[in-house]
Amino acid sequence: MDNPFDLSSDIAWCPGCGNFAILKALKSTLSELNYEPHEVVLVSGIGQAAKIPHYLRVNVFNGLHGRSIPVAFAVKSANPRLVVIAESGDGCMYGEGGNHFVHAIRRNPDITVIVHNNQVYGLTKGQASPTSEEGFVSKVQTLGSLSAPFNPLSIAIAQDASFVARGFAGDIEKLKEILKQAITWPGFALVDVLQPCVTFNRVNTYTWYRERAYYLDVQYDPEDRVKAFEKSLEWGEKIPLGIFYRHRKPTYQEKFYALVSYPHLLYRERAVEEVLDRELQYFQ
């Protein structure tokens, strides 16, 4: 069956890039959740991952580097009927957009944040990114990155993010399951996706991830925040995948009085028409 989210366009990623799998997983997820393309908005920033909205049939907002989350938050606030996904790379979300990432979690808007985490800057061709391992050698960090990597999961759990998960671009089926739960989850949902960059990251390859990645088993309790934090620290020999943490709490849209009680922007046009109709009846 045709996927309504399919779009034929030239794709400017390297052959073998992990982004292809994420694109496929996302399209299937949206289709299997029975959404229509007009109901979905993809907001992205700048980077290789940020090109993703151009490659599927959805509403697109492609803004500036690092700024996808505030835009996604506002889109959702204005029109809560939309499925709003902010999607970009680790440089965009955790580096230049790091401040937005931290503070969006505090507000808990009902959006999904998908981060293609390839541990390198792909678009600008191979510099160390916020998630690069310490010592990662690049053309700029020739003696290895001096900074400790940003741990998005630990930070999200520490901030009590509503939904925190990690997927792997090398496993589309499992990634789809995670994306389905994240997108339908009411509240801020982070999906950090390990995405091999075949061109600029020769360390964290498909094989490297496959040798280390494992899924959290059924015994694992994603409601336990302390356990989740502990799991989020696990990296190296073993890398856990799956849903680390889930905590249902009021979303920004549910908490903010104006968004609960007053008409959203969504209804503005109708409201204006109603007022006009009311005023006009005096002239009839």
């Binding site: 678009l123 510099q127 053309k139």
Partner: peptide, 19 residues
């Protein structure tokens, strides 16, 4: 510096001099 097209190439070349 921070990488941005079309400047990246300049800073990268400088990084080589550093290394």
């Amino acid at each position: 510096a921070y990488p941005i097209t079309p400047q990246t190439d300049c800073v990268e070349r400088f990084a080589e001099y550093v290394s």
